[in-house]
Structure formats: structure tokens, C-alpha cells
Design a protein around this nucleic acid. Sequence first.
RNA 1: GCUCCGGUGGUGUAGUCCGGCCAAUCAUUUCGGCCUUUCGAGCCGAAGACUCGGGUUCGAAUCCCGGCCGGAGCACCA
Length: 487
Amino acid sequence: MEKYGVEVQEKKQVKEEGLQELPGTHENIVLRFAPNPSGPLHIGHSRAAVPNAEYVKRHNGKLILRIEDTDPKRVYEDAYEMIPEDLKWLGINPDEIVYQSDRFDIYYDHARQLIEKGAAYMCTCDGAAFKELKDNCKACPCRDNSVEKNLELWDKFDTMDAGEAVLRVKTDINHKNPAIRDWVAMRLVDETHPRLGNKYRIYPMMNFSVSVDDHLMGMTHVLRGKDHLANSEKQKYLYDHMGWDLPEFIHYGRLKMEDIALSTSKALEGIENGTYSGWDDPRLGTLRAVARRGIDPRTIYNLITEIGVKMADSAISWKKIYGLNRNLLEPIANRYFFVEDPQLIEVKNYEGGKVIVERPLHADHMDRGNRLLPFDGSAYLAKSDIADGVFRLMDAVNVDIKGDEITYNSTSFEDARDLKARIIQWVPAEDNVNVTIVMDDASLKTGLGEAALSDLNVGDIVQFERVGFARLDEIKDNELVFYYAHK
RNA sequence: GCUCCGGUGGUGUAGUCCGGCCAAUCAUUUCGGCCUUUCGAGCCGAAGACUCGGGUUCGAAUCCCGGCCGGAGCACCA
């Protein structure tokens, strides 16, 4: 009886919402987010950043932001600034930031240790020749060189030409996956590094610097994409050689983004040739682009948390993002009128004189007060709203539209209901502001908005009734520019 | 081609390890109703899934084998 009870309890372990629980220790965990600084962060990066941050938060651990800038060809200098900004936007604050370019001496030191242990060797084979041997499970001649010989070559590594030699880590030359066999740890690079200039010529390969750092920084868990599965396998050999404990390696699947298939390099290319306005062009999948459109960081954070760290790939749909974001925006966004392609109309036979129409900023939050829209018989309507039939200019009057003729019908809402009049928005003839809305495909919607919009600040998010949610991006002399979020 | 990894509604996710409580969870989406001075929101309701075929078993989304489909890696990139 007792035993049965225990078993049931084990099975019914309560799981945390969203992210599945971390394997291994939960005490003093240390995790890292380690991007290559090739550009600002995009939604794909959040798949790595968010779970790390979330686990750290959950277990009160430590999060390190490690900038992996060990390939000068793939460093975009502004990214050093942009990455921490993007993380901050996501609500992620690393406990520490380290740059791998500051740590070359540490890598050199460990490379030497490896050679001394006989676990690495200087390889002077031609790349193609090595591959030929490796693919046939054959060791190259360099593999048998003595430690002394390897140290000698290592010491004059710096004087060789790029490509003349590399340092290889010994693995298993018969490993069934050829990619794992004796991988490269160090190579020569002559490119100028944005932070280091030409101070060093010997550069670590990612598998080497990552392993050394992960160990030295005390990582308890390493989360990475499944594209690194083979790399984890390679790195295990290094941990073994050095006698280090392995962190928990956790791999997650690919994140596919509906529509936008933009890699950082493609985006940069488009920015440079003028196709895109910048890293925050609404067509891009960068965090700064979605932020500009009024996507709340919690939308991204929550969605990524929900997707979790499983090995299967997943595809994010904009519908899902918009749906989640709408739930966050709906209560905070105040309502305003905007008419696209405004047509000034005159309501014939209107004799009500000048009235001030009051509309709540938000129907569910009356305490926020009202906007005031003066009406005296004429107004701007959206071109697409003008069609034959009976309509109610919201909160003002009911009109009959026939061709160019717009005539007064009645005033009360009850009449509109009886007439089954469709309700349309309008903008006062006198009191209005120019509005441009930059859509998600970068096209522009231009028109007029009600005067109350000029009270807004940049960054405010509104809902234009029947148009959608938009974020005020810029206040120009005679124009407000919004970025469209979604319906 | 070789090595490896996946496959639950349109999308995302729970459940798979330890088979029964799963005629499968939640979110988003779509549709309908109510309400409402937004074709919005809200409320109510509905739609929609275990990749296929064998096997084990009293019982399979869950275990085994095979097929199919998808993805990744196979760099002196990260």
C-alpha cells in the first residue's frame, strides 16, 4: 500500500508551465547565451536567449552573455552594442558579458596543455589530402609526431602562412561520423579583427573556444540548436582529454519563421543596397523590427517559452504572434479614428449645427476620458467606405449615400439600428492631423486622423478603429508616422 | 551518398521516459450565437490532430520493427 502510494507520487510530479524542467542539477546553475556578433538579434536568436534566461530566472542562477567573435569575417561591429540592447528589450539582463576576443591567451594556454598531453597535434597536411585520409579512417602522418615536435611547430605557428598548418584535437579516427574525426582547434587568420586589429594571427575554432569557455565559466547546462549535435560530440573529446566534467548538453530544433526567411547576411545586403530602410525595416525578422511595429516583448518571450527546447523543429506563424500580441495590446491601446484616402463630404440637409462628439479613449476603461470630435455637417470619410446605402458616421449622424450625394437621414443611434446602418469612422473637416501608417510590407497608408492623436508620444500604441493596432514611430512637423502591428 | 535527429488539429504546445485515468490538454486560428455606437474586445458554442503499416499486449499517441515524410551535420564558420 505504502509502496503503491510512492509510485503514484513519482509519476505525478508537477511540471512547471511551459518550459520543461532542466535535467541535471538545479542548484547554482550557470547558463549562457553565446551569439556570433554578425548583426542584431532576430526572432531566431530568441529561441536560444529566452530559455536560458527563463531557466536562470526560475532557479536563481547566473546568465552569461558571451560574444563569440572568433571569426573576423563574421563580425559586424555595431552588433556589440545592438545585442545587449536587444536582450534588454526582451527583458533579459545577463549577469556578465564576456568577449571571446579578450581571451586568446587563455586559448593558447589550453592549446599548449593539450599538446603536452599528446591530445592534439600540429597538422601540416593539405586540407584536401587530410580529408581524403580522414574519410577512409586513415590517420595523417602528422598524427604520430612527438610532443616535442608538436610543441616546436606550435611555437613557430605564428610565423607560418595561413593555411600551412592547423592544430587538431585527437578524437577517434574510426569514428563512424567522419565529421568527428580529428577536428581543427586552431588556425591562422590574417583578416583584421574589429576589436583586436592584427594583434593575433592564431585563432581558435568555435569548438575549441566554446569548450574551454564553457568549462572555465562553470556552465552547468549548455543549450544549443540541434545543428550543433555533431559539435557537442566533438567537444566531448576535448572534455575527456582535459579531464573535465561534462555540462548537460541540451539541443533544440530549428525555428522556422513563416514568410520571412531572412538571414542576417541577406538583411545586411538589403540594407546596404537600399532595399531595406535599416535593421528595423518592418519586413525584417529582427527584434528591433518587430519592436518598432508594436510587438510586445512579452509576446515573443512567452511564445518561445511555450515552444520550449524540444528537438523537433517548429514553425512560428504570424497569426499566433498577432493573436498573443493582441491580447496584450487590447487593454492598453486607446482608440482613434483614421481614414485612409480621405474624401471631404458635405451632408446635405443637415441642420443640427455644430456639435462636439465625445468618444471614449477606451470603451472598457471609461476613466481614461474622451476624445472630442467637432461635427458641423461636413467630414472626411475613407474612400473605401463610400458606397451607396445608409451609414452612420459613428456617434454623429445617419446618412444616405447615393453616388456623390450624401444626405442627412437622422441622428439617433436607435434610428441607425432600425435602418441597419453600417457604422463608419470619420474625421472632422477642420480639426485633424496628417497620418501615415507604414504597413508590415513597408507600403504606406496615408490619410487623416483625429486631432487628439497629437497628444501622443512616440512609442504609444493605439488602435485605429476597424484598421488595426499601430505604434507611433515619429512626430513630424505636420504629420504623424505610425508603424502597423496587426488587425 | 554518409552520419544523426525528428513526426500530436492550419500553427504552437501537453501527454510519450514509467502502456490503461487520452472517445487526447491549453493557446492561436476559423466558423456560429449573444452582447456591443469598432467588421475590435468580451462572453457562449462549434470545427479541427496522435505520419503509415505490421508486431508485442487483455489494452498502444505511448513499447518494438519496417516504410513514408521532414530536418540537421558531413569547413582552417558560428
